[in-house]
Amino acid sequence: MLPRNDPRQYDDLAGEWWRPGGHFEILHWLAAARGALVPRAERPEAVLVDAGCGGGLLAPHVQRLGYRHVGVDLRRSGLEQSASRGVTPVTGDVTALPLADGAADVVVAGEILEHVTDLPGTVAELCRVLRPGGLLVLDTVNDTPVGRFVTVTLGERFGAAPVGIHDPELFVDPGELTAECAKHGVRLQVRGLRPSTIGLVRWLFLPKGTRSRPLGRMIPTRSTAVVYQGMGRKQGESR
């Protein structure tokens, strides 16, 4: 068995990225919530960098916004699926993005920060590749007892998360994340997210043969105790 948070698990789970009702179902709901925060591109050559893109779940939510969608990920199995959905695939680590300073108009980091072992270094990279005036959009799991219980204990028991996919020691405190972003000129605003009740019921109890997407969606909430979303612009005038 692979250790917790080992990225090789995603190769074994490659068939789950786009399977309706599968282990990654809620990731689709989170991707839609991220996509809703991305504005239409303001210039013809605008670039959106999708850090830790996985199987390209963000693609359908931003494909008509006018960006060149660049997906960065460590695992080829996910990048191949991203490429099939119009994403420009780049093999790389989010702690050392293989992109130039200020290359992106928008940087999206969805459900990746709770998997990195160097949070300050990762935040620095996300902000480095973001151009002045550019937008950072992210979501992650909070480092709280309830966040650990819901994501790991309940999530793994009921199939909301594959067993061992998370290391709760890496979950991210929003105050720490906000402070790290501020060091690099991004004032991050956060809000909580929760899955819709009807969506959860459909996912958990409908027979597999009747499942079709979308089963549910993420709803903004005041509580950031489990999952939260953040967005902020990098200081400076856009070029």
Rank of each mutant, 00 (worst) to 15 (best):
R213Y: 15
R68W: 03
R43F: 11
V87K: 02
P98Y: 12
I26L: 14
G192H: 05
E237V: 14
R202M: 04
L74S: 02
F205R: 09
L188R: 10
H23C: 07
G216A: 12
G66Y: 10
R19F: 06
G22E: 02
R148Y: 04
L126I: 07
D167E: 10
G185V: 10
A182N: 02
G78L: 02
H184V: 09
D12M: 00
G236P: 13
A160E: 09
V94L: 04
I165W: 00
R233E: 10
V129H: 07
D139W: 06
H23I: 06
P132W: 12
L135T: 07
H28F: 00
G121M: 06
H28M: 06
Q229P: 08
I219A: 01
C53K: 01
H28T: 12
P3L: 04
A124H: 04
V226P: 10
E169R: 15
G22M: 10
V72I: 07
G66E: 13
T178V: 14
W18L: 11
E45I: 03
T144N: 07
N5R: 02
E125A: 06
R157K: 14
L97A: 01
L138H: 11
G192D: 08
I165R: 02
T221P: 03
I26S: 14
H115I: 00
M231Q: 15
R40P: 07
L154H: 03
E111N: 13
R194S: 07
L2T: 05
I198C: 07
R233M: 05
W203Y: 15
G147M: 10
A160V: 06
V201G: 04
P20F: 09
